[in-house]
Each structure stands twice: as C-alpha cells, then as structure tokens.
Design a protein around this nucleic acid. Sequence first.
RNA 1: GGAAGGGUGGCAGAGCGGUUGAAUGCACCGGUCUUGAAAACCGGCAGAGGCGCAAGUCUCUCGUGGGUUCGAAUCCCACCCCUUCCGCCA
Length: 428
Amino acid sequence: MLDAQLLRNDLEAVAARLADRGLTLDIATFRGLEDARKRVQTRTQELQAQRNASSKKIGELKRGGQDTTALMAEMAKVGDELKRLEAELGDVQGRLEAFLLGIPNVPHPSVPAGRSADDNVEQRRVGEPRAFGFAPRDHVDLGAGLGMLDFERASKIASARFALMTGLLARLHRAIAQFMLDVHTVEHGYTEVYAPYLVNAESMRGTGQLPKFEEDLFSVPRAEGGKLYLIPTAEVPVTNIVRDEIVALERLPLKYVCHSPCFRSEAGSYGKDTRGMIRQHQFDKVELVQIAHPDNSYEQLESLTAHAEAILKRLELPYRVVTLCTGDMGFSAAKTYDIEVWLPGQNAYREISSCSNFEAFQARRMQARFRSERGKPELAHTLNGSGLAVGRTLIAVLENYQEADGSVTIPAALQPYMAGATRITAGG
RNA sequence: GGAAGGGUGGCAGAGCGGUUGAAUGCACCGGUCUUGAAAACCGGCAGAGGCGCAAGUCUCUCGUGGGUUCGAAUCCCACCCCUUCCGCCA
C-alpha cells in the first residue's frame, strides 16, 4: 500500500511512475474521495470536540447540583448528527483504503522502464552452458526414462499440474531443500523457520496477495465460517511474523529462511508451461525473507540476491541475473532481480528465483515497524527471494547433469545428502 | 468438543460511568552528581490521524464489532484470541 500522504502531495509524479508499469492511476476518483474525506472528517471532529466539551461541562454542573436537562437535550441532537457523520466517514475511509490497496508499488528509480519481459536488463551471466555430445533431453523425458517422475498418476490422484516423484528422484528433491537450508543457515546467517501453510486473510493482505489476487490462491472453508488460504509462498507466513509488531533497532536486519510447499491455482496461465513441472499447483521452495532498515534495504537486496546465487554456484549450474523492468514486476515490489538458470532441455534461461525489495509497501499494510534511532516507530522495509525454488532446481540438475544413457550424475554438493548415491540410473 | 479464567502503553500491572489517554514499577532518552561507571536525584517518554506556514490545536484508539448514555477502559450483546482443566488425538 502506498502512503496516502504521498498521493496527496505528489499525485502527478506517482501517477507518472505508475504509468511505466502500464497502470493508469484514476486521479479523479482519488481526488473525489480525498475531498469527501476531508469535508466529512473535519465536520465530524468538530462535533466530537463539541460533544466532549459539553459532556465534561455536564459532569461539572451535576457535581455542583445544577440543572443540566437543556444541555443534555441539545447534546442528544448532536449525538444523532454525529452518528450519521461517523457512518459516512467510515464509508468514505473504507472506499479510500480499498482504492489504495489496489494500487501497486512505485518502482525504484533504478528500475528500467519497459512493457514486458523483453525489456528486462541482464546484469550478469555466471557459468558456461555445458556442451553436450548428444541431444540433451528435457526433465520430462529424463524423469520418465528413469521411471521416477510420473505426471499421469499424479493427475489420477489429484489433477493436472501435479507431480509424482519416487525413489532417488524424490530423495534428490529432498536433498536439494536440505542443502539450501544448510547453506543459508550455517553460511549466510539466516534463522530457520517452520511456519503455517494455511494463513488467514489478514496475512494475505499484509503481503499483497489480497484483496486483488484472490483467484490465484487456493483456500479451504472452515466449519465455523470464514476460510484459510494455502500459502503461495513462505513469504506470506514469514513476513507476517512482524505484522503489528515493533522490532528493536538492534535486531535489524531480521533474516529468516523457510522451506515450505507452495500452492498456486495458476488461474489465467492455462496453456502456459503445461509440459513438465515448470508450473505446478504444488511445489517446494526455500524462501529467504529479510526485515531491514530503510537506510540499507537496497544493500540487503544485493546480499540476499547473492545468497540465492550462491546455491547455483555451489551446484555449478549456469545462470544469469536480470533486473525486471517496470512492466514485468510484481504488484508489491519496488525492485526485483530474477535469477534464471540454464535449462538445456529448453535451450533457455528460466526463472528459478525472484529477489525483491518491497520497501515499506508490505510493512505499511501490516504495520510492521521498528523503533528508530530517534526512538520513534517507523515502517521497516521487507525483502524476500527464493533461495531457491526446489522443483525448478531439480529440473536444472536433471537437465544439466544428464548423460547420454539417460542417467544423471549427482552434483558433488548434493552427494552428502544422497546416502552414498553418486548417480541416478533407471531402476537404481 | 465440555468447563473455568483472562485480554489495558515496549514489558509488568492498577483503574467508583464524568479533568483517566490512563496510577505505579521496569525498560528507554536527557540532565545533576562522579575521574569514569553504578547508585541516587530531577525531567521526559503510547500510537494513528485531521486542520495549520508555524507555534499549536483538535479527533480517534484500553482484543474486535455493535448497543445503552449528554458522557464508556468502566454497563449490556456478539465475535476473536490467549491460559488452565477434562475429553479426543499425529
């Protein structure tokens, strides 16, 4: 959520920067709501002040044994008027908040303007795609050849866009998550978190999934009414740790890492990435979350991105980092780096991590604050990034480490987690 | 699922329907004292928002939402959450 004050003072500039995102800010609607808010709020507060003064006076008069019936009758009328005004004010403020909740974050000045992924700017490439002496297969063929990756049965059990892994492939999946958690906790100083996979609407609103993107979420109804939402990323429960809290200055930055399943309905993406496990309703991810001081949140974004990259380096997987342009960024982000891993089966770099600084956008929604040097509570900055997506890392390992006979060599970094196995072979 | 108790400022903890936005303690900030620190003493210290160039001033907030009243932290109703005991259970 943007600062209402910013919109009041600098509406044109905000609208111009949001236009880079392809969003036309409804300036007339905002001004209309603001004017109404100002008028009704001022009048309401005047009457409230009058009521408070008179009530105090009545108390004094009564103590002095004097008659108060005239004043009380007058105040009863003011009370009726107040009740009406307060209702109107609540209505206007509700609509103003709904308006604000629907506006995406303002991009950081360093973010390149652009309309689509084509306008993203490559920052660096690390590692050389391997030269195969044969035509590399994609993970679907490799997994089927090994007899360990089965989409037909997954769809029998659940539906399309689910995967069933067995044997060493399932173990490799687990090994990847363990490896990532170990690196981030032991070497990068993150605190491991185990968090709820079902969360309430307040948490979803805090990180920005609600109210605008409900159709992307799975939810379960509750017998007692209401519902809980399945998390689309551990970002939601982990960032909400600090919702409605004031963090001591010296504790910043808070650095959390959380391995969790993620559930996404992928509404609106039908027909996209239908082959294989690139885009699933359920996938695992190791998520990095930081609650940072506004003064250094962009330095933290660089280090968080480096932490995610470290995993790819250790797995010796080629990748590149791109800065998302204004038109390709997510709703809540002020700046995002995507890390894209090389997939020989697709002959392309594909997203495996997305690292973002949200500045105070999420913090304002969830009132996540810290006590500043001045002793005053201020909104913190929130950041997160995949470190990394487990399923896509598995795909990258399969495709990059495949051999001509369809077997897969296990990267050295993962071998300690594989109970002695160094290769995955059919029937192995 | 059943029963009981409880939700007040960063924390702990008071609070007859009327100068209580809230005593007191701790923590924190500033000052005195001290070579320095501690102790002691003095002062300050909740958050959000409106109006205003500013000084300032006003409003809202005691789990949430309603209600009673001229006036609610205090009374009534509903809901949420926490704790304890019983039941069930990975």
